[in-house]
């Protein structure tokens, strides 16, 4: 395999992603884990760029880093005073977790083995066309219209529910 700059950057992203993901699951301090998760999510966004999925990469950053991760940090800072986590793990949980992890590993390995265009990740061959337009066509004018609308309604319900829960109590006096 030719070792170009592109491969170098790709492996940089891949290593960053894996290393920070390891930090997320091993570190005891939850806030450190959350910030490490930020690096992981960024790394995944970088890998999306290598897959020529620019729109997906930006969406990844905007939704996960700018939205969900902020929410996680909010939750951690507002709720618990204790930041050090010492979780007691039962043997049964360990067994169940091991089985799930093994199943996930098998699934991923199958997908990796069955992906034919794997070298696209590191090849700097022909550039694929931008994805934004195709995603828009598929979602709003194609086969994914119904799932998209269902998800929109679901989110609207969640939004209204959140408003209902957080609104001020109106007392009858």
């Amino acid at each position: 395999m030719e070792f170009t700059l592109r491969t170098f950057i790709f492996y940089g992203f891949a290593l960053t992603t894996i290393a920070s993901a390891l930090v997320v699951v091993t570190v005891r301090n939850i806030v450190h884990a959350a910030f490490s998760l930020m690096v992981t999510l960024f790394g995944v966004a970088g890998l999306y760029v290598f897959l020529q999925a620019d729109f997906l990469a930006a969406t990844q950053v905007i939704v996960y880093v700018g939205g969900i991760l902020v929410l996680i940090l909010f939750g951690v800072m507002m709720t618990s005073g204790r930041l050090e986590m010492r979780i007691h793990i039962e043997r049964g949980q360990l067994l169940l977790g091991g089985v799930v992890a093994l199943a996930l590993l098998m699934l991923l390995l199958t997908v990796i083995a069955n992906t034919p265009a794997w070298k696209n990740l590191t090849d700097d061959g022909t550039e694929l066309p931008p994805t934004t337009e195709r995603i828009g066509e598929l979602i709003l004018n194609g086969p994914f219209l119904l799932p998209f609308e269902v998800v929109s309604v679901l989110l609207l319900v969640a939004l209204i529910g959140a408003t209902l829960i957080s609104r001020k109590e109106v007392r009858d006096e």
């Binding site: 806030v31 930020m38 729109f55 700018g66 934004t132």
Partner: peptide, 23 residues
Amino acid sequence: NIGIFYIMAISSVIVMGVIMAGW
């Protein structure tokens, strides 16, 4: 190709720095 969307994505990360500084 995704210019303005990229700007939105990158500027949404600033808030992580703010939380990091504050905490």
